[in-house]
Design a protein around this nucleic acid. Structure first.
Lengths: 175, 175
DNA sequence: GTCATCTGCTTGAACTCTCAACTTCCACGA
DNA sequence: TCGTGGAAGTTGAGAGTTCAAGCAGATGAC
């Protein structure tokens, strides 16, 4: 049985679901395979060379790009597309490494800044080339310019659809 | 500083790395965001409705598609693009749920089959519609046919490049 | 002011994943 | 018939993630 494709013998109560066609299924399989392999590949590369998983590296990059190399926890979580809980644990770990430090927010006593330390910046500088290289080899070097453009558009659309409403985030009454 | 883009002040020893252009960077960011959000979304949906993460669901699907609903552990790991270790743990868990059972391989005493049970099949039948629906909503309903085709091609290329040499797997002397 | 509610962030427990052994068995050559 | 090396699979410990609960400070109604 093909559980993405074939309709079950007896149709479900909630109306016949729209199964994936064979072609859609091939696309989906390719997507799942590629993302699994790639995330695994990058995690392994960064873990080996820089001693942290890909997500953590992304956090450091985001901080490096932020003004004064600091971001409120919630902001950082939003940028990195992870939960605040996950971020809390992650920052705790990065703090142990000395790559990030927490600072209290003066204007809101509940608030915390995650701040990239100089040491964290160094780690980034040291390992950025290796990471970029891995990304290049796995993705950009294999795609034509048109495919790269396409990929960007497609992923933009998918991300857009899953964002907790980026646009209109300050217009909650419209949701 | 922009650690995927900007060259550091002092060039690295191993030759100047080829940094990502602004455009490449936008594409990569979109990719990471979309895949993070989507995997998270699917994990959450399946965890809530079916009580298992997306990867585990994928294992059940793969087994369901296999002849006699069974696959050698190594085969299953290869199909699902995960390590044998990870699979071992996963199957242990699925076995506890009664969705998969292990069987000895008669021709190779080291070998194990993972077999999808009837109960496992039922779980799949019950929750396939919800999952397909989630995938549709997040991906296919948002893309034009051309974009879907593109996505399939691109992901195929990326996956191909990261496979432990699918083609030539039986020609190890060429590696 | 004060109470209820909301927001920002953290915590601990349960679960999952990784990595490096380790066990068992197969294959093959001397 | 031994080894010896490789393959199949598992294991345990440590790291990472999730989920629900929790605390403390902000906010708004009255």
């Amino acid at each position: 049985m093909d559980c993405m494709n074939t309709a079950p013998a007896s149709s479900a109560a909630a109306g016949e679901p729209r199964w994936l066609t064979d072609e859609e299924q091939r696309v989906w399989r390719a997507y799942v395979d590629a993302t699994t392999l790639l995330e695994d590949h990058l995690d392994r590369q960064l873990q080996r060379d820089a001693g942290m998983p890909h997500v953590y590296y992304g956090l450091l990059v985001t901080l490096a790009e932020a003004p004064r190399r600091r971001l409120r926890m919630t902001e950082l979580a939003k940028d990195a597309k992870i939960t605040r809980s996950r971020l809390s644990h992650a920052v705790a770990r990065l703090e142990k490494n000395g790559w990030v430090r927490r600072e209290d927010c003066p204007s809101d006593k509940r608030g915390q800044f995650a701040v990239l330390t100089d040491e964290g910046m160094d780690v980034l500088r040291r390992h950025a080339p290796g990471h970029v290289n891995a990304v290049r080899q796995a993705v950009f070097d294999r795609l034509t310019p048109e495919q790269q453009k396409s990929l960007g558009e497609i992923m933009g659309i998918v991300a857009e659809g899953l964002q907790p409403s980026e646009a209109g985030a300050d217009l909650p009454w419209l949701r």
